[in-house]
């Protein structure tokens, strides 16, 4: 069994308007030292998944099903209090906006010390020393002085570094980063991505990076999982997803994105329509109303939910189109259009 394994994870929220199936049958596995990128648009269920793994939906209104195995331990059925003791220690999380994700009234140091002392029975003094060490490790200059600063006294990049120091303070084995660089400037984003890459190597943690930015995933991930409407629509190695993508949604994402590493194309190739509301997920394949190739599925698109099927070597695709047809569409109809003529 892998270090982290999700089996058919379902996280549903009952609301006045109906059941919101934020995560609907998600499975994947991840080893220590490896990075999984989860890509999706708003409402795809990617953030709910991450909070679900940490057990933060427990005790709320959420209906959680399936299994989450972390280092041989099942967490969905586990006692909430037990999962709490794992949180922050065995698994930790980095959030998108470090300004709102840190408490404005406590110093950065106090917040790291707090995180450390939950799981380590040490004096404040020892914890403070550890906090200073962690701040230094994530590249904050003069950590012994900055430890007493408040979050608002840090710049955006420094705040995100402090957030990472806090997450890593208890030496977690699983680190989940939810849009870790979205709120940052591009030069600072590059620094943070470098830092995360280095730290992951040092800590040998399993890293899940959740983002809408294909560039960020490509920089860090070994494997990539594309989510749409609460389900995985494509899963594979980074090369599978960028070189041989087989799902029309993945093609759409690639076509929507202007790229600096290629000649400028005259037109972007967007996906029509908008991401679905999770209260009202389209029948059949959730992507079918936006899919250009829906007419080639002989009506199955709107009536039947496609299975997630392995096409080869661990590359999984959830699509009604036959494999050969998908490959030929990619080679002949999509790929040439992504490159400038």
């Amino acid at each position: 069994m892998s270090f982290l394994e999700l089996k058919d994870l379902r996280i549903h929220f009952p609301t006045d308007d109906g059941l919101v199936k934020s995560v609907d049958g998600l499975s994947f596995s991840l080893e220590r030292g490896k990075t999984l990128g989860i890509v999706g648009e708003s409402g795809s269920g990617k953030s709910v998944t991450s909070l679900g793994i940490l057990g933060l939906h427990k005790g709320g209104r959420a209906q959680i099903g399936g299994e989450i195995w972390l280092d041989g331990e099942e967490l969905v059925a586990a006692d909430a209090e037990h999962v709490r003791t794992l949180r922050g220690k065995k698994m930790a999380m980095i959030f998108q906006d470090p300004l709102s994700a840190m408490h404005p009234f406590y110093t950065v140091g106090a917040q790291i010390i707090e995180a450390y002392r939950i799981h380590n029975d040490v004096s404040k003094k020892v914890a403070r020393k550890h906090a200073i060490e962690m701040l230094g490790r994530v590249g904050i200059p003069q950590p012994d002085r900055r430890v007493d600063s408040y979050p608002h006294e840090f710049s955006g990049g420094m705040r995100q570094r402090a957030m990472i120091a806090m997450a890593l303070s208890c030496d977690p084995e699983l680190l989940i980063a939810d849009e870790p660089t979205t709120a940052l400037d591009v030069t600072v984003q590059a620094q943070i991505l470098d830092l995360m890459r280095d730290l992951q190597r040092d800590f040998n943690a399993a890293l899940i990076i959740i983002t809408h930015d294909l560039g960020v995933v490509a920089e860090l991930s070994d494997d990539i999982l594309v989510m749409y409407g609460g389900k995985c629509v494509e899963y594979g190695t980074a090369e599978d997803i960028f070189e041989r993508p087989e799902h029309p949604y993945t093609w759409g994402l690639l076509g929507s994105m202007p790229r600096l590493d290629r000649e400028r194309t005259e037109r972007l190739l967007p996906i029509k329509g908008s991401p679905p509301s999770l209260i009202n997920v389209p029948s059949g394949c959730a992507f079918h109303p936006r899919c250009v190739f829906e007419d080639r599925t002989a009506g199955k698109g709107s009536s039947l939910v496609p299975e997630l099927v392995e096409t080869e070597g661990g590359h999984l695709v959830r699509c009604h189109l036959p494999r050969d047809q998908r490959r030929s569409i990619w080679e002949n109809e999509i790929k040439p259009n992504l490159e400038a003529s």
């Binding site: 709490r84 959030f95 709102s100 408490h103 939950i118």
Partner: peptide, 14 residues
């Protein structure tokens, strides 16, 4: 509902 409450929970605080 603030983000920092989510962070506090993610640390494993009671």
């Amino acid at each position: 509902n603030e983000d920092y409450i989510r962070t506090a929970r993610a640390k494993g605080l009671a």
